[in-house]
């Protein structure tokens, strides 16, 4: 019972299907799991297994059809976009495979963006963002645009951006998918350090050595967790 209370994420029988034309595609078929506070979990599965959909649901970027999702003790069922935006900004940080930095904004501005949406004043926002850039070792690159940086640097900026609003959970979608092996291991080291500070980390990946660096791995097969 104690682990249940400590669970920062609890999924109970989540179902999700997409309708394309006349066909109904069931992507998640009643998926349940718990992720504890401070855990670093890898989600693995072949393409089409529903891992990206799961991550989108966890990140409140997509809705689910049935079941219940408790995030930090609150139900995420039937959220409207406004409420979802509020929870995203308060509780969640995102790291994407393709970095998803805004091209016309400098590294510092990109990192400060979540704070902008929390209406934190410019000066304060830039000071905080600079702190996080320091944390990922990119303080000298603050005024550079994303296309002036390498893939690894871009991902570190994205990680700083995910951290800046002090989320409880970081969701990473193939964070090393676009990086070479050396950079990949740097990024993973960074993510581990962040996790060590107590932030729950969920990483979707298809690479076994990446998954091996996590506390545990959830295998998805056809929209369900493979317990074998």
């Amino acid at each position: 019972m104690e682990w249940y209370l400590r669970g920062v994420i609890k999924l109970n029988n989540i179902g999700k299907s997409y309708v394309t034309g006349s066909q109904k595609l069931e992507v998640l078929k009643g998926l349940s799991c718990n992720i504890k506070k401070g855990e670093m979990v890898a989600i693995m599965g072949s393409s089409g297994s529903g891992k990206s959909t799961l991550l989108n649901i966890l990140g409140l970027l997509d809705s689910f059809d049935s079941g219940d999702y408790l995030l930090s003790g609150e139900s995420m069922s039937g959220l409207n976009e406004r409420a979802a935006a509020k929870y995203r900004s308060k509780l969640l940080g995102f790291v994407f495979q393709s970095f998803n930095l805004i091209g016309f904004k400098t590294a510092l501005e990109n990192v400060a963006l979540p704070l902008y949406y929390q209406s934190i004043p410019r000066k304060k926002r830039n000071v905080i963002a600079m702190d996080y850039l320091k944390k990922v070792g990119l303080e000298d690159w603050a005024s550079h645009l994303p296309n002036q940086m390498s893939g690894g640097q871009k991902q570190r900026v994205a990680i700083a951006r995910a951290l800046v609003a002090q989320p409880k959970v970081i969701l990473a979608d193939e964070p090393t998918g676009a990086l070479d092996s050396v950079t990949s291991s740097d990024v993973m080291t960074l993510l581990r350090e962040i996790n060590a500070d107590g932030i729950t980390m969920i990483i979707v990946t298809h690479e076994h050595d990446i998954a091996a660096l996590c506390d545990r791995t959830i295998h998805l097969v056809d929209g369900l967790i493979d317990l074998s």
């Binding site: 990140g59 970027l61 976009e81 406004r82 935006a85 509020k86 995203r88 900004s89 308060k90 995102f94 998803n100 930095l101 805004i102 963006l113 979540p114 949406y117 929390q118 951006r161 609003a165």
Partner: peptide
């Protein structure tokens, strides 16, 4: 991206 970063 802005939406994911908390823009309503």
């Amino acid at each position: 991206i802005r939406r994911a970063m908390g823009a309503t």
